[in-house]
Design a protein around this nucleic acid. Structure first.
Length: 155
DNA sequence: GCCAACGTTGGC
DNA sequence: GCCAACGTTGGC
């Protein structure tokens, strides 16, 4: 069982979008970064938990929790030239990109903002707050996980 | 294999 | 909208 943080721009896809999906479940498509892909492909497991993080917005923050409910499988949006994340270099017989299914678990009453996280000395090693980290999928340690839940008033 | 040019991410 | 920090691409 591992913990993760997954970023999404709320204007594009927010935690409310995920919550309003049928069965509160959706696929996490559009990852086009090898490091992020490798995390999904090699390390993510069904039953893992992930923070939903709103990025590139007025108040960047961890806004809730979701569960990984599938293994990694090919991201079909890479094969469709009409798709934003189309990749002509991804061969359907040997897919370059993968995605996982995620299920909404909870939305925090109080989001834990990036500013809040940066203000916590104990979280200064979090990959999220290290200089210039643009990875959209990041591992979170159990200690960091519990700390942020506490900050959200969820424990 | 190097590296300049270019594109993207994401905080501010 | 700006810009720093990266990741990727492609010429050589």
């Amino acid at each position: 069982m591992a913990y993760w943080l997954m970023k999404s721009e709320p204007d594009v896809y927010s935690i409310d979008h995920l919550r309003s999906e049928k069965r509160k479940t959706d696929h996490w498509d559009g990852i086009r970064n090898y490091q992020a892909r490798n995390f999904m492909r090699d390390q993510m497991q069904k039953g893992d938990l992930a923070f939903f993080y709103h990025s590139n917005c007025a108040e960047p923050a961890v806004v809730g929790v979701m569960e990984i409910v599938s293994e990694a499988y090919p991201d079909h949006t890479a094969f469709d030239s009409q798709e934003k994340y189309f990749d002509a270099g991804s061969d359907p017989d040997n897919p370059r990109w993968v995605m996982v299914d995620v299920k909404f678990k909870k939305k925090f009453k109080t989001p834990v903002t990036l500013a809040d996280i940066k203000a916590q000395k104990k979280l200064s090693d979090m990959r999220l707050v290290q200089r210039g980290n643009r990875l959209s999928i990041l591992p979170v340690t159990p200690v960091e996980w519990r700390h942020i839940l506490k900050m959200a008033g969820e424990s």
